[in-house]
């Protein structure tokens, strides 16, 4: 009887195969593959910055003002070659960029992750519970989305003050709504499917139905939002730091490095601003290439 004939492989292989198939589909776009490779390389460079960087840019005692504003390729007093030059304090720019990248990525990823959790919980709850709770959450989402992100972040930082933690709070505050809206949209569709009704008929708890049944079926579109929002968070953080309200001076992110170099721009020391800017640009392009590909994969109707 065909009904009881089975020919599928055991469990682990199935999961690996699905992952491999997804990877293969992703890599069909050379641009996305390049973006992913660059992104992984950047993340590794950021994670292992203390091992790679020739100098610890936070150790002010090691800096010599005589080495300040050396152009790329100069040899310092110590005999070391600064391949990207030095900044206004005599810091090795390559090292500063690696450490700045580390901070930018960390702040971006962490705030995107926390916003993801907050937004997902609120979006799922809104869709599942409906009624007034849904309206309340969605009005908050509308409110948040009707103001430019930078404006909300500036207001929050003006109230909270400067600092890494405060910057992250501001970033989370301007991001959660995107996750909430995305999750709610897919949860509204999934909620109507009969497996949710079956779970209710089996008298499973609401939390279990939300987490085990609704959530796993709403995750795919979130992946796209995560990449887009992470890029968004990194840019926003750079902007805030550039404006002098974001991260503290002591541990400069890419945005702050650009800002610090800005004053030397007219004096001809272009590299102090340009190279951190280039690094930021590479990060953005890499993430966006991945995000575009993910969006195409999850939403074939939107393929361009």
């Amino acid at each position: 009887m065909s009904d009881t004939a089975f020919i599928a492989p055991p469990r682990r292989a199935v999961r690996l195969r699905a992952l491999a198939a997804f990877g293969a589909a992703f890599a069909e776009s050379p641009a996305a593959l390049a973006g992913a490779l660059v992104f992984v390389a950047l993340v590794l460079a950021a994670v292992f910055a203390p091992l790679i960087a020739p100098q610890n840019p936070y150790d002010l005692a090691k800096l010599s003002i005589l080495d300040a504003r050396l152009p790329p390729g100069s040899v310092a007093m110590s005999g070391y070659t600064h391949i990207l030059g030095t900044d206004g304090l005599g810091r090795d720019l390559f090292s500063a960029i690696l450490y700045g990248l580390r901070i930018s990525l960390m702040v971006g990823a962490l705030s995107a992750f926390v916003a993801l959790i907050i937004g997902t919980v609120l979006g799922l709850t809104a869709a599942y519970v409906g009624g007034r709770i849904d309206s309340a959450i969605m009005r908050l989402v509308d409110l948040q989305m009707s103001f430019p992100a930078i404006l909300i972040a500036l207001i929050l930082l003006a109230i909270l003050g400067r600092g890494a933690d405060k910057t992250m709070i501001a970033l989370i505050a301007v991001q959660w709504a995107y996750y909430a809206r995305t999750v709610r949209a897919s949860a509204l569709v999934e909620r109507e499917r009969e497996y949710i009704e079956a779970a209710q008929g089996l008298r499973l708890g609401h939390v279990r139905i939300l987490m085990r049944h609704l959530l796993p079926n709403c995750i795919a579109p979130l992946l796209v939002v995560v990449t887009v929002q992470m890029a968004h968070a990194i840019t926003l953080e750079a902007t805030l730091s550039f404006l002098g309200v974001g991260l503290p001076e002591t541990q400069p992110s890419l945005g702050l490095l650009i800002a610090n170099g800005y004053q030397y721009m007219l004096g001809g020391s272009y590299w102090i601003s340009i190279y951190p800017g280039v690094a930021l640009l590479i990060v953005m392009v890499a993430i966006n290439l991945m995000g575009d590909r993910l969006r195409d994969l999850f939403n074939p109707a939107l393929k361009r």
Binding site: R193, E194, Y195, E197, A198, A199, G201, L202, R212, H213, P216, N217
Partner: peptide, 16 residues
Amino acid sequence: AQMVFQDPMASLNPRQ
């Protein structure tokens, strides 16, 4: 009291 549904695909959680 339990129910058997009409659509055998929609009534099973695709991720379970």
